[in-house]
Design a protein around this nucleic acid. Sequence first.
DNA 1: GGACAGCGTGAGAGCGCTCCCACCGCTCCT
DNA 2: AGGAGCGGTGGGAGCGCTCTCACGCTGTCC
Lengths: 359, 359
Amino acid sequence: MNASPPRSLRQVPGRPSPTLEDLALAAGVSRSTASRAINGGDRVSPEAQAAVDRAVVSLGYIPNRAARSLVTRRTSSIALVIPEPDVRVMMDPFFAVVITGITEALRETDVQLVLLMSRTDDDSARTLRYLRGGHVDGAIVVSHHKADSWARSLSETGLPTIFIGRPWDTAFDVTYVDTDNEGGGRIAARHLSGIGRRRLATVAGPADMTAAVDRLRGWQAGLREAGLPEGPVVHADFTTDGAAAAARRLLAEHPDIDGIFAASDLMALGVMEAIQAAGRSVPGDIALMGYDNHAVAETAATPLTTITQPMVEMAVKAGTMLLEEIEAPGSHPEPVIYSTELVERASTSVAPTASAAKA
Amino acid sequence: MNASPPRSLRQVPGRPSPTLEDLALAAGVSRSTASRAINGGDRVSPEAQAAVDRAVVSLGYIPNRAARSLVTRRTSSIALVIPEPDVRVMMDPFFAVVITGITEALRETDVQLVLLMSRTDDDSARTLRYLRGGHVDGAIVVSHHKADSWARSLSETGLPTIFIGRPWDTAFDVTYVDTDNEGGGRIAARHLSGIGRRRLATVAGPADMTAAVDRLRGWQAGLREAGLPEGPVVHADFTTDGAAAAARRLLAEHPDIDGIFAASDLMALGVMEAIQAAGRSVPGDIALMGYDNHAVAETAATPLTTITQPMVEMAVKAGTMLLEEIEAPGSHPEPVIYSTELVERASTSVAPTASAAKA
DNA sequence: GGACAGCGTGAGAGCGCTCCCACCGCTCCT
DNA sequence: AGGAGCGGTGGGAGCGCTCTCACGCTGTCC
């Protein structure tokens, strides 16, 4: 066994860049003073500071991160860990949104974002080694499944970590940001009952994902609050096809349903397919809701009423929280939960299917 | 002016990890031998190698990247540069696909992917500084617009760089991978003429993006080859709304059109909107094609015939090409162009609008 | 007027690693 | 028999930076 993977990168030629020593020489000060001037200038005379600043510009000096990192024991980089065995999920815009948000949080910082994707268990082991190796100052983990043990593994290492989406196991005092999935589910129940639907069912997500479980819980609570029975629940895997199959079962067993809440827009598309295949219409016969406010919700044949969540803000928050925890280790910030909102579209309009209404 | 941005990360406590010295001690060899054993073991006796390997495991030794990087002048990381002023574009699945592909290429390597997004010119300057600073061994740039000068800037630094998508200015011998946009445009022309449409028009992308220009050129060449006139061309900005507006103009000026090629699926959606608003049908009155095989092409009210391109492979190729160029600097690999394929759906079927046909 | 802050400064050590070079012991050639 | 060659090894230097420490210099207080 080898501590270092087999392949690495060769030396890059590149003209020698100026060192701190060169800079100090050019500025007519010592290396120490130059260093202080570079790093926020505490205890540096205005003259020295100015001289160094000038030298920085004229030499095009850029501090060597490796040298700095070697002595400070910090890397000025954080990791985004995406432990997702399924490639398909990465195609989700969610992914891009998270990255955009974190980048935004890092903008005024010289902290770099390092991407760590692990599809296989093998990858996970490597990723974990990398994280423990002190190569990053902190990590943001997008972990969704019950099975994965990132919460435990990382809390053991003591590496500052923020989860996006409540991890399954919150026993290891992990910090996380999330959207109010339970509230979103409740909004769905309230909306469908509010437009007069009475025989409601849901196509929920996988029972091993916190988001799915929370949405379902909220949905059922909302139904109870509206004085309605909890109604049938079928689970699917957050894919269109999986939801279509689940919805077929649902419709066969409960032909009198007049409203369905699918726990994601992609699933709602599958449900819509099944409804039409059964010769029923949306929203005429069955009102349909999705979740996420995904692009497809708007472009669907019958645009979907759905739940929107402030994903970018959430990702930004994850980034800033991580920076804070890195600067003040030991502070265990409280989880932050963002509220969700209803987006009404044709799939729950009281009027008959109104696909031409837009124009 | 300051060479280093104001904010950085504090020191992480963390137990001291074993150094190479510790490892050597545990293995009963010198630091030099331990180093050699770690790095591919050239000129190391089997016994020494085994002893070091054992020590690595028992100590949980992980080499300090900073120290290594300091002396080797290589960082074992590459940058993915996304110079996109528009947030919206990042929401595109394209983005996730590129990252997935590059990650795949890096899998068996210990090279890390660092993400560099620059929205503003200010960001760009910082990003460029970072790249010149020798913080990464190479870069992959996803640059699309005529205006941006990444090709020039980077070719000047000598940093190994691969572009995804042909950069506008190929004068600075840049290496790139791309899909055959011209071929894709030609396929579109051939397909629409093949199903008997004769009065064809296109909603092209912005004239300052190579992909848009190439698709248009291919389209027009295809029309000529089919013995048809080049027909009207309107430009839009690759957005749904922009395309809708362009299509309205197009339809007003050329009411007899019976086929439209939109240079992206998102734009095709806008075109479809405009067609329906004009009281015409797809594909009955007007056959419509998109490009990209985006998720929405399948979920659209009338599923879109479109052009698919092997994006993941392309991104993987970009990754492997970069690794090669880093290992063998000076080699200027030829650009690689991936071919595209037609995906037929309802929007160009000869039968009348078949939205219910799917079930 | 001497002691004592406090500020600005520079010298020096050393972070963990790789790489050059010198060295050892051996075989193989002349 | 003496050297050349070679595989394996260890010592040492030094990558570019930060940080501790000691030093001079000014001012301020007793």
